[in-house]
Design a protein around this nucleic acid. Structure first.
Lengths: 335, 335
DNA sequence: TTGTACGCGTTATCAT
DNA sequence: ATGATAACGCGTACAA
């Protein structure tokens, strides 16, 4: 298949390539007559615009990257949908990559984006990403928006949830139901997100005159099984605990398992709040009360911000922190 | 930021651009001495390869498109992960778009891919895609692999599941457990996939001398909420139904909700089989027995096939139909 | 409106 | 046996 070029269309229309180019992009002043002749020629020839050539000439592109660490996680699926929608509005193409928490793959993707002259990117960086990665990224001087996982480096735009407020709401809910012995279960020590959530938790306790106990703040991997394991140890040692705020819904599901194993029924003998509002939360018995973060909205907002940066917005880096919402179901009892 | 070009690296190394290009891509004959001088210059200059220029020159690219109709669906999340992984192996970048079942957006995406000179694509076409879309696509002469939803047109490569066999297995499982009043819940009337699954379901019933009842075959949207809604209506009207094969796991999860609302416990008072084996299936209580179609594997196989097409494989179009597997968990009772 | 230099890497052809 | 020269891919934008 021979590709038809601008030049060929121009010859067919009996004009110059400059004219055709202008008609194509509605620039400059072209007379109605010529315009129509060109449009006709374009139509007849089956011309396909060569974005690559244009990009080369313009030292630009219409392509942005999205890097996630787990595209399989429904939360990121939602987020991707939000971002994708926003990109489409601006005629931008979206490159997707899944780092699977590998810093190496992550770096490769970013390098690839640079080679391909991408005009921006949205990143949810792998957990152990070295500082050097961010430093290098800043030197590249390409718009980059961080999402969900707040970067240590304040030099980047960020869109995420108000983790602090989220656990404050969760904790307030438990306090209001009369609980005083409340644990915090889950998350990794090195996680910044966890720090924020812990902050909301302890600050709310203190507001109510309760001193948080360090022994009741335990970490867990992001899995049901580890949530269960950890909860069992904790609750066996401290049976006086009657409620918990969990770092994630999956962990909360694990805690439920542990409770049952120990003969305590979640929602009746123990109150449980999760975080994320994954779809399972609504399905389990008792349905999990949880903090909902609007994943789609994070994607949309990240897209909006990225687009403005691409357009040249050079305000200082900003953080867009979306407000969470407490979804009250039945895992804290009925009322 | 000034972009460093091949020419500048060449000057720095005291050689021609041709030499640098050859070193970069390990082509041609370059002496060890020169090669090292060039590598040094490359390193010192902080050169970034301009893929766009190379693509323009080569009339090719390293970019493929993935079009889905619902990236939010965990099934497609898995599939995307599989494809993404495969693309990465071959140093291909993946463009993602979400048609949300809109033929217009779908067409726009494909046009965009053509303009950007993509070298191939993987499509799960929107439901009401007109024939003209496929015709046009074939004329484009660009490698395109259809996935999951079998196209009417046999002129395309296809990777998907044996839906017929899948529901046969699911149905046989329920029959073996003694169920006789079995419903089929979910899917859209216009879906070819659904026809195949219904086919497996009814054929297996008939094998066992059971006449399928049309009233027990109900449609539902691909969401928990609609699954729940539909199941409630069905089971209220026909309380004698004791089991169901669901079109999708998400629908099955909805059915679970409905059952509980009606005071029936899934896995004890009602047996449920899903389809897809999304990750939630293993997590809910009771864990969902389901037909696994190895979503990731579909993505991988599609990627493999696409790559071979890009490499010039011009065998006639083929269909890769992956065998499903029944994953028995506890939603049909314990045994 | 047009002519044309330009963006930057690639590769066939030529030179040593 | 090595490496240089230069035409080329195709759309863009400025000077004329």
């Amino acid at each position: 298949m021979t590709t038809i070029t601008l030049a060929e269309v121009a010859k067919r229309a009996g004009v110059s390539t400059a004219t055709v180019s202008m008609v194509l992009r509605n620039r400059g002043r072209i007379s109605q007559v010529t315009r129509e002749r060109v449009l006709k020629a374009l139509d007849e020839s089956g011309y396909v615009y060569n974005q690559t050539a244009a990009n080369l000439r313009n030292r630009s592109s219409n392509q942005v990257g999205l890097l996630l660490h787990d595209i399989t996680n429904p939360f990121y699926g939602e987020m991707t949908a939000g971002l994708s929608h926003e990109m489409e509005r601006h005629e931008l193409l979206l490159f997707l990559a899944n780092s699977e928490e590998s810093c190496e793959r992550q770096q490769k993707f970013v390098d690839s984006l640079m080679r391909n002259n991408a005009c921006g990117m949205v990143l949810c960086a792998a957990r152990e990403t070295p500082r050097a990665f961010f430093e290098a990224l800043k030197r590249r001087n390409i718009p980059a928006i961080m999402v969900v996982r707040p970067p240590d480096d304040p030099g980047f735009d960020f869109v995420g949830t108000n983790n602090f407020l989220g656990t404050q709401m969760a904790t307030a809910h438990l306090l209001q139901l009369g609980h005083r012995n409340i644990a915090f279960i889950g998350g990794s020590l090195r996680s910044g997100t966890r720090s924020q959530r812990i902050g909301g938790f302890t600050s709310k306790l203190l507001e109510h005159g309760i001193a948080p106990k360090a022994e009741w703040l335990v970490t867990a991997e992001a899995s049901q099984s580890d949530g269960s394991r950890v909860a069992e140890v904790l609750l066996n040692r401290y049976p006086q605990i009657t409620a918990a705020v969990c770092y994630q819904d999956i962990v909360a599901l694990g805690v439920m398992q542990a409770l049952r194993k120990m003969g305590r029924e979640p929602g009746r003998d123990f109150a449980l709040v999760g975080f994320d509002d994954i779809s399972e939360a609504a399905l389990v018995q008792p349905a999990l009360t949880t903090v909902s973060v609007a994943a789609k909205e994070i994607g949309r907002k990240a897209g909006e911000l990225l687009f403005s940066r691409i357009q040249g917005n050079d305000e200082p880096p900003k953080s867009i922190i979306l407000p969470p919402a407490l979804v009250v179901r039945t895992s804290c009892g009925f009322r």
